[in-house]
Design a protein around this nucleic acid. Structure first.
Lengths: 188, 188, 188, 188
DNA sequence: TATGAATGAGGATTCATTCAT
DNA sequence: AATGAATGAATCCTCATTCAT
C-alpha cells in the first residue's frame, strides 16, 4: 500500500502546486486532491517538508531519465549534445504541472536546505553526462566553459519556456540550442 | 514623509526576504526591520501584496537602469551587446539581498498576476533594448532568435550566479557571454 | 495594557487547570476563560510553555510570600517554625484553583525543564528561610536533617490536603505539624 | 496469550512514560515499545484509559506488596514501623521507570476518576497496615494522627527522592524516618 | 489472534488586517 | 502621522480509535 499512497500523494502535490500555487499547496488541499485524509500525509511522509522534498526528487529523477534518454537517442556526438538539451524538454517535462512544480522547487533552492541538496546532486549529474560527449567534440581547454554554458542555456531556455510556453515552444528552443551547438561546437 | 516611509519599507522588505526567506518575510518582521510599526505598512501601502509588488517594481527599475547603463557604456555594437549582458550583473544586481528578492519574485510570477505583469513588461523592455544593437550586427533573419538566446542566456547565467556566486563569478560569466557573442555574433 | 493582560491570562490558566484539568487546559479554553482571543496568548507570552512557566512562577512567588508572612508573624522561634509550615496552607494556597495548579506543575517537575528550574529555586529559598530559625532551636548536627524533614513533611501534608481537603483540614495539619515540632524540636 | 500480552503492554506503558513523558506516551509509542501493533492495545484493553488504569493498579499492587514485605521483615513493632516506611523505597519502587509512572498517575488523580479510585483504595490499605503496628506503640489518642503523619512523611520523602534521588538517597531517608520514629514513637 | 491503514477532530501557533487612540 | 492591541481564520501536525483483512 505504501508505494501506491506515496505515489498518489506526490502526484497530488504536483497537481496542487500547479492548481493553487506553491504557497497555497496546503496539506489539506493536497490530501483532498489525492482523495485521502490529511492524516495519511503524515503517516506516509515525515511531514510536509519531507513530502515536498520527495516530490522534488521525483521530478529530478524523471528529468535525468529524460535527459539520459535524449543522449542515448543520438548516434553522433552532435546529436547526443542536442539530445542533452532536448531531454530537458521531453513531454513529461513540459506538462504545465511539472513546470509549475519544478519552478517552485527550483527557485527555493537557496532558502531550503533540502531542496538545495537535491539540486546540487542534479547539477553534478548533468555535468557527468556532458563530459564524455564534449570530450569528442571540443578541445580540452574549452570543455568546462562550454559545458557550463550549455547547462546555463538549458536552464535559461527552460525558465523562459516555463513563463511563456507559447512563444518559446519546442521548435524555437530547438533552433536556439542548435544554433549555439552549431556555432560553438561544430567548428571545433 | 510618504516617499521616505515607502522607501524605508521597500528596503526593509528586500532585507527581510534575504534574511528570513520569502515565506517568513511577514509584515511584523518587515516593519520591525524598518524600525516602524506594523500599522504603517497598511497606511502607506494597500496591504502586503501591494508592498511586495512595489518592491518588485523597484528591483525591475534598478535592473533596467543597470542594463541601460551597461549598453550606454559601450562604444562599438559588440561592446554594447556585452554591456547588455553585464548590466544584469552590475553591483546592485549581485548583492545577496537583491538576488534573494529577485528569485522570490520570479517564483511567484506564475501564481501572482501582479508579479506576472511586471515581469512581462520587463521582458518586453529588454527586447526593445536589444533590437537596435542587433540590427547593426546580425542579419534580420537571425535577429529574433539571437535576441531570445541572449536573454535566455542572461537569465540562465544570472540564475546560476544566484545559486553559486563563487564558481560563477563575474569573470566566468563574462567569459561565457563573450564566447557566445564572439562565436555567434562577431562572424556575421 | 501588557501587565493587565498577562495577569488576566495567568489567572485564566489557573482557573482552566482547575476546571478542565491540566491536560485539557488548552489555549482555546484559557483564552475564552479570560475573555480574550487565542491570538493574544501568543502576543503576550512566548507560546503555551512560557505562559505555563510564568503561571507556576506566580504561584511560587505567592507561596513564598505566604511562608515568609507566616514566619514573620511568629514571635518565638517555635512560633516561627510553625509559621513556616502554616504558611504553606495560607488561604491563598488552599483555594481549589491554586491547589490544582500547584499539583499539576509540581508533579511535572521531572518532565519539564522549565518547571524544574522554578522548583529548585523554590526549594533553595525554603531552606534559606528555615536555616536562621533552626539555628536558635536545634544543635548544628541535626539542623540539616530536621530542615529536610520539615520540608518533606510540609510537602507530604500539602499533597494529602490537596487530595483530601476535608479529612486533612487545617486543624489536622496544624496538629500533625505541631506534634512533630514539639516532639523533635522543643526538647532540644 | 492474554495475560502475556497484557503484561507486555503494561510494562511498555511504564517504559514509555519514563522515556517519553506522560504526555508523549501515545498508543503508537507504547505498542512499538512492546513490539506489538497498535490494534492490539484496543484488543486487550478497553482503550487507552483502561490500559493506564490497569498500569496504575499494577504499580499500586507492587508497592503494597513491598510495604507488606517491609513490615513482615520486622520482628519488633518499631522495626515493623520502619519497614513500613522503607517498603516505599524498595528497589522496585525506586527504579526511574516506576518513579516516572507513579508521579504521572499522581498528577492525574484529581482529574481522572479511575485513578482517583485506585489511589483512595491504596491510601485506605496503608492505614489498615499501620493500625495494628501502632496499636502496640502509641496511646490510642495519638494513633490516628501519627498514622497520618507517617503516611504524609512517606509521601513527602518519596516525592523528594523522586526529584532528587542523589541527595535524598536511601540512607538519608532512613535517617529522617528513623529520627521521626524514635522521637515520636519510641518514647511512648 | 493480529495487523496497520485510515480517519478527522483537536492541538498550538502564525499572521494580515483592522481600528481606537 | 503613527502606534500596537486585538482578532480569528488558516496552517501543520498528532493521535485515539476503528475496521477490513
Amino acid at each position: 500500500m505504501e508505494p501506491v499512497r506515496r505515489r498518489q500523494l506526490i502526484e497530488a502535490t504536483i497537481g496542487a502546486i500547479h492548481h493553487d500555487g506553491f504557497q497555497n499547496a496546503t496539506i489539506a488541499r493536497i490530501s483532498k486532491r489525492a482523495g485521502l485524509s490529511v492524516g495519511l500525509v503524515n503517516h506516509y511522509f515525515d511531514g510536509k517538508s519531507d513530502l515536498f522534498e520527495e516530490t522534488m526528487q521525483t521530478l529530478v529523477d524523471q528529468t535525468l531519465a529524460d535527459v539520459e534518454a535524449g543522449i542515448a537517442a543520438g548516434t553522433t556526438p552532435l546529436d547526443r549534445l542536442m539530445g542533452f538539451v532536448e531531454g530537458h524538454f521531453a513531454p513529461g517535462q513540459r506538462s504545465p504541472e511539472a513546470i509549475s512544480a519544478w519552478l517552485s522547487f527550483y527557485l527555493q533552492v537557496g532558502e531550503n536546505a533540502g531542496f538545495g541538496r537535491i539540486q546540487q546532486a542534479f547539477d553534478a549529474r548533468l555535468l557527468e553526462l556532458l563530459a564524455p560527449i564534449l570530450a569528442d567534440l571540443v578541445p580540452a581547454a574549452r570543455r568546462e566553459g562550454i559545458a557550463q554554458t550549455l547547462i546555463a542555456l538549458a536552464y535559461g531556455l527552460w525558465l523562459r519556456h516555463a513563463y511563456d510556453p507559447w512563444h518559446f515552444d519546442l521548435d524555437v528552443i530547438r533552433a536556439i540550442a542548435r544554433d549555439y551547438v552549431d556555432d560553438v561546437v561544430a567548428p571545433a
